[in-house]
Amino acid sequence: MTRREIAQQVVKITARELNMNAADIKETDNFAMELGADSLKSIELVAAFEEEFEVSVIEEEALKVQSVGSAIDFFDKLLNKQ
């Protein structure tokens, strides 16, 4: 999976989970500050990413991810390392 494909999926899932338009989501957006994800929503987002990419993440590492761009990088590294 290329970084571009991963980015598309991350944005699509984020839009679905946070009930937003995908077009409004930028890689620089912070999940909590700009997109309004509270702590439970952040966990649900990670859970949704895990389901979509069919991986299990270390929760402490995943929950350190703050922005859309860093989420894309996180899964790019995880998927393309395997």
């Binding site: 439970l40 966990i43 649900e44 990670v46 859970a47 895990e50 299990s56 929760e59 995943a62």
Partner: peptide, 10 residues
């Protein structure tokens, strides 16, 4: 992990 139980928490 907490991500596995997120649906229950919701």
């Amino acid at each position: 992990s907490i991500t596995k139980v997120a649906k229950i928490q919701r």
